[in-house]
Amino acid sequence: MNYILEIAVNDYLSAASAIKGGADRIELCSALSEGGVTTSHGVIKKCQEDFTIPISPIIRPRAGDFLYSEEEFDIIQKDVLFCRQAGCAGIVTGFLLPDGNIDIERTSIITTIAYPMEVTFHRAFDRCRNPFSAMEDIISAGCNRILTSAQKTKAPEGTELIKQLIEAAKGRIIIMPGSGVRKENIRDLAEKTGATEFHSSVKSLSKSKMEFIHPTFAEMEGEYLQATVDSNDVKALREALPGAGR
């Protein structure tokens, strides 16, 4: 089985480390602790220039819900156009209506603007009213995949729904489990659901290389820690998949 491993990263250095560890695709964003928001155009362009694997920036103008104002949707469209012009392989986004259904109109606008980039509908899906009708709406809007934790906080808690969604999709769209995907559970997740693409952030913390620490901030450990990705963690995640190795 040819599994695809997508790694979510906060910055350029984390992307480089994830690729070194064996990532097949990068979800590029900022503020992963808040679910991810759009990173700077400079980071997107630099990653696109330097890396050969597919880069899919998240297009999300703010944290919080997925109900956007007209002004925010205009920003989203501009960011999608930039990613297309930069040569990105895909983008990651998602839109809900106030009643919890998929905003088919806005999703369709974005897939049209994004083409030929792939469009992943992100975990806004996990906040929708009905996952099966939502999947049909997302398919009709032209998306290529759905990133989901099966409407649970962690994907391994929702294996049965993920399996059901994959079966109902019948190859029309990729269902990609994400959230809480780790080396300890990825094999079980693959075997129980039939999923072939997986999303993980494998976050770790690295200490700052600053030699001078101002006394005012010396006790504030978080000021000198940076979220990152360890290439060994990505390698371990891949090796835990059924049939281990590339």
Rank of each mutant, 00 (worst) to 15 (best):
M1W: 12
M1I: 12
I4R: 08
E6R: 06
K20D: 11
D24H: 10
A31H: 00
T39M: 03
S40P: 15
T52W: 11
I53L: 15
P54W: 10
P57T: 08
I58D: 01
R60N: 09
G64T: 09
S69Q: 10
E70F: 11
E72A: 12
D74N: 14
K78Y: 00
D79R: 01
V80D: 06
A89D: 15
I91A: 03
T93R: 01
T93N: 03
P98K: 13
N101L: 01
N101T: 07
T107F: 05
I110P: 05
T112E: 12
I113K: 10
Y115Q: 14
V119M: 07
F121Y: 10
A124P: 08
A124D: 03
A124N: 05
F125R: 08
C128L: 08
P131K: 01
S133R: 13
D137E: 08
I139K: 09
G142L: 02
G142S: 08
N144M: 02
N144Q: 02
K152E: 15
P156M: 10
G158D: 12
G158L: 07
E160F: 11
I162H: 07
E167M: 05
A169Q: 04
I173H: 02
I174G: 02
I175Q: 04
S179H: 05
A190N: 01
T193S: 03
G194W: 06
S200G: 05
V202G: 00
S204N: 00
L205E: 11
K209D: 13
K209C: 13
K209G: 07
F212D: 04
P215S: 11
E221W: 07
G222L: 14
Q226Y: 10
T228P: 02
T228L: 00
N232P: 06
N232G: 08
K235L: 14
A236N: 11
L237I: 13
E239Y: 13
L241I: 07
G243A: 05
A244M: 14
R246Q: 09
